[in-house]
Design a protein around this nucleic acid. Structure first.
Lengths: 239, 239
DNA sequence: GGTTCCCCCTGTGTATACAGCGTATGACTT
DNA sequence: AAGTCATACGCTGTATACACAGGGGGAACC
């Protein structure tokens, strides 16, 4: 399990404000900072090699994106989702994502397509070995695909949704490890993209999201006995 | 035209962080801070009676919500939308809003319904007099309705979209002044809500959004001669 | 006269320092 | 022994202060 320091250590110079936000986002997505975890400002600032001012500003940005909750006096906490909220977020993905992938159809250059293909290859190559790496590449693939539609605001909103869901998807991936669905979902999608079949792309996107929702739903209802409060049942905080 | 000071002056005590964000959001929605306008930190901080630190944090939150853009060195600017971006945002409303109003159907208490009705009444009562007030109440009505569905994240995302569009809708309202559509759109919606006819509620929501998009589209293409860069053609900055 | 370079200056970005609140620990009371 | 209150610590929130970058205007050069 990587510590937050490995994120901070990567950059020799103190990170620029944008980089700082990025690092924190990644840390939350990749479960280095866990849902519900209190974020000690002094601590984080020291680890990133900045003072509390820029750190607090980065946290405020994440508050705006919904990834972090801050209440006066108590400080900041990584957002924690209840099962119903996860369901809601998958509904949002269903509303936002299919139109975006479909809209990307006309705009994928052969170069971009090649890039996506190589991402899938890399992802599947090391699939069995490092599930964390697989999850990261999986996220990158989807993100990259969605960028191609060239719709700024849709992308921004959808990114917020994906970032909220990612820690929970990743928990599932880590524990169940099932990436069998990977090839069978991504390759047909790329194929449809290549053929510029917008309808097929949309349908495959819908199916893929529904499948992901179903996997996560089945998982969380089998793990937690009866929809306990948040999913924190599963999240034994390694303090 | 109200100045930013009227916002700051309302509160005797220096505003709490949350209030500060709220005040800035309102100022942007209500065109007190115009799209593209540079936000001088010293100036704003002084007007709100706080130092630059909490002001900057509030701005960062708005950056996370997409209302403000900050680039290092240059500082913060209110976001400015191109016509295509407005169209994209209306697409997003079409994707997000109808499911939410439909979902509210089961959950509106008689009390809440009454509250919504009185909002419509107030709105229409002073419709001719103060278009700014009308626009504010109009926003409040829709926001209140959407809250009722009880879907946190959908509401959060949709609010971001509404806040982005609002300055431009409001410009239209201010110049064209047309609130004729108000009663004819809101009363049937409330009626369908009362009858708990989810499908009707959804359809009316779709129609209402489409109508709003059409109005704004017609307006902006008639005002700016030929889709000039941003809509800033219309926005003569009163410095 | 136009263009380019440099300097000054306004305003942003960040560290340091302090004030206030929330929480936990301990003692005292019932 | 349990509950309650007071005190102290830690952390957050914010103001002050300083370093630096970016932009505009003036002067010198072409």
């Amino acid at each position: 399990m990587p510590s937050i320091d490995s994120y901070a250590g990567g950059v020799a110079r103190p990170p620029r404000p944008d980089q700082l936000v990025d690092l924190l986002r990644r840390a939350i997505r990749e479960r280095v900072l866990l849902p519900g975890q209190p974020l000690n400002q002094d601590d984080l600032a020291r680890r990133f090699g900045v003072s509390r001012i820029p750190l607090r500003e980065a946290l405020r940005t994440l508050v705006g994106e919904g990834l972090v909750v801050m209440q006066s006096g108590t400080g900041a906490v990584v957002i924690e989702l209840h099962p119903e909220e996860l369901a809601e977020l998958f509904d949002l993905r269903l509303a936002l994502e299919p139109p975006l992938t479909a809209a990307a159809v006309g705009k994928v250059s052969p170069a971009a397509l090649g890039e996506l293909e190589s991402l899938v290859e890399q992802m599947d190559a090391g699939a069995g070995r490092d599930v964390g790496l697989w999850a990261t590449q999986h996220y990158a693939f989807h993100r990259r695909l969605l960028e191609l539609a060239g719709r700024r605001h849709s992308l921004r909103l959808l990114t917020q949704v994906l970032n909220l869901v990612e820690p929970y998807s990743r928990l599932h991936t880590t524990l169940v490890g099932a990436q069998q669905h990977s090839r069978s979902e991504h390759l047909p999608l790329l194929d449809a993209l290549r053929r510029a079949d917008a309808e097929e792309v949309r349908d495959l996107t819908v199916a893929s999201i529904a499948a992901a929702a179903a996997r996560l739903e089945a998982f969380s209802s089998s793990s937690g006995e009866a929809g306990r409060d948040p999913l924190s049942v599963l999240l034994d905080d390694p303090v």
